[in-house]
Design a protein around this nucleic acid. Structure first.
Length: 425
RNA sequence: GGAGAGAUGGCCGAGUGGUCGAAGGCGCACCCCUGCUAAGGGUGUAAGGGUCAAAAGCCCUUCGAGGGUUCGAAUCCCUCUCUCUCCGCCA
């Protein structure tokens, strides 16, 4: 959610910024709505003030034993008028809120121009793709032959875009998550979080997934309106919902390993092969809660923490600064990490690190007490994958494959694999 | 699942229809006194929104949430959520 004051006072600048995303802010509609809101709200406040004063006068008159019948009649009339005014206010408020909730975040000045992913800017590269003296297989062929990836069984159980992992591959998957958690808690100073996988609509509104992106989510049938989390970002960022954080508690750094559930509506036919795009996948998520002045330094730090995972695993990757048109709804600036996949002969997204500034904090009323003003002010929230577990496993399988179809276990994972050095069928 | 008790400001806690945004305490901030390892006194201290170029001021809202009764609700009624205790069940 944008700062409504900023929206009102710097409307033109906000519109210019949103236009970089390709989002057209309808200035006339906004101003008309504002006029209406202002008039209705002022009138409702006025009526309420008068009713309160009248009611108070009744109390005082009765206390003195005076006749209050005229004031009682006036009160009745005021209540009637107020009820009507409040109905009108609620209507315009709903309209105004819905409109505000539909606006994406403002972009940081450093975000490159461009309307789609082809305009993303490569910031740096790390590692060199391995040169194979045989034709590398993709992770599906490798995993199926190793007996560890079973898409057919998953299809019988659940349908398309699910997988069953078995044996050494299942353990490799677990090893990756464990390795990442230990790295972030042990070396990067994160607190490990275990959080709910089912969340309320309010939590999703807080992170910006609702109301606009309901089609991306799985809603759970039942008495209560639960959704499956699309990422641990949702429960973890909501840890600071409706809180006022003391400055000495900042920054907060959280890491959580959770499954993520995505409907992938609109992705029909895209990445249908293998583990790249599943309805359920595991991810180790990093969340920073910081003072506003620190958030861009925190974005660099958070990104570097995700990069460390790939470095320790010996996986070649590149870092992209997403362009204006490709950046997510709630983010002011995003870096994507793309890992090299020999089986596909290309770099594929494995992490996305975003600074949401105060966008989510405003939605969830997450504040800190700024000593400079003594007032509660919105925090800045950041999140990033550190990293996607399924895709990391794809990268390990493809990058560490051998000519005979076996897969060498990266050094960093061996302690988590009982010392195993090579995965064989 | 059954029975009971509760939900008030950063924290604890009083408050059963009117001048209550809410006593008192703790914590915190500032000031004074005193001065030697400790205290005493005073003042202030909720959040959200509106109006305003902005500040001040003024106004509105908020005592778990939503509805209702009333001229007027923290206080009365209804529904829901959450917490705690006991019983049952369960990993």
């Amino acid at each position: 959610m944008l700062d409504s004051k900023q929206l009102r006072t710097e409307t033109e600048a906000v519109a210019r910024n949103l236009a970089r995303r390709g989002f057209a802010l309808d200035l006339d509609a906004f101003r008309a709505l504002e006029e209406r809101r202002k008039a209705v709200q002022i009138e409702a406040d006025r009526l309420r003030a008068e009713r309160n004063a009248n009611a108070k006068a009744v109390g005082m008159a009765k206390g003195k034993g005076e006749d209050a019948s005229a004031m009682l009649a006036r009160g009745e009339q005021l209540t009637g008028e107020l009820t009507a005014a409040e109905v009108a206010l609620a209507a315009v408020q709903t309209e105004s809120d819905a409109w505000l909730m539909g606006l994406p975040n403002l972009l940081h000045d450093s975000v490159p121009e461009g309307r789609d992913e082809t305009a993303n800017v490569e910031v740096r590269r790390h590692g060199t793709p391995r040169v194979f003296d045989f034709t590398p297989q993709d992770h599906v062929d490798l995993g199926v032959k190793l007996g560890g990836l079973d898409f057919e069984a998953a299809a019988r159980i659940s349908g398309a875009r699910f997988v069953v992992l078995r044996g050494g591959i299942a353990r490799l998957h677990r090893a990756l998550a464990q390795f990442m958690l230990d790295l972030h808690t042990g070396e990067h100073g994160y607190q490990e979080i275990y959080a709910p996988y089912l969340v309320s609509p309010e939590a999703l509104v807080g992170t910006g997934n609702l109301p606009k992106f309901a089609q991306d989510l799985f809603a759970v049938q039942g008495e209560r309106p639960f959704y499956l989390i699309p990422t641990a970002e949702v429960p973890v960022t909501n840890l600071v919902r409706e809180q006022i954080i003391a400055p000495e508690s900042l920054p907060m750094r959280y890491v959580a390993h959770t499954p993520c559930f995505r409907s992938e509506a609109g992705a029909a036919g895209k990445d249908t092969r293998g583990l790249i795009r599943q309805h359920q996948f595991d991810k180790v998520e990093l969340v920073h809660i910081v003072k506003p002045e620190d958030s861009y330094a925190a974005l660099e730090t958070l990104t570097s923490h995700a990069e460390t995972v790939l470095q320790r695993l010996g996986l070649p990757y590149r870092v992209l600064a997403l362009c204006a048109g490709d950046i997510g709804f709630g983010s002011a600036k995003t870096y994507d990490l793309e890992v090299w996949l020999p089986g596909q002969g290309q770099y594929r997204e494995i992490s996305s690190c975003s600074n949401c500034e105060a966008f989510q904090a405003r939605r969830m009323q997450a504040r800190w007490r700024n000593p400079a003003t003594g007032k509660p002010e919105p925090l800045h929230t950041l999140n990033g994958s550190g990293v996607a577990v399924g895709r990391a496993m794809v990268a390990v399988l493809e990058n560490y494959q051998n000519a005979d179809g076996s897969v060498t276990v990266p050094d960093a994972l061996r302690p988590y694999m009982g010392g195993l050095e090579v995965l064989r069928g």
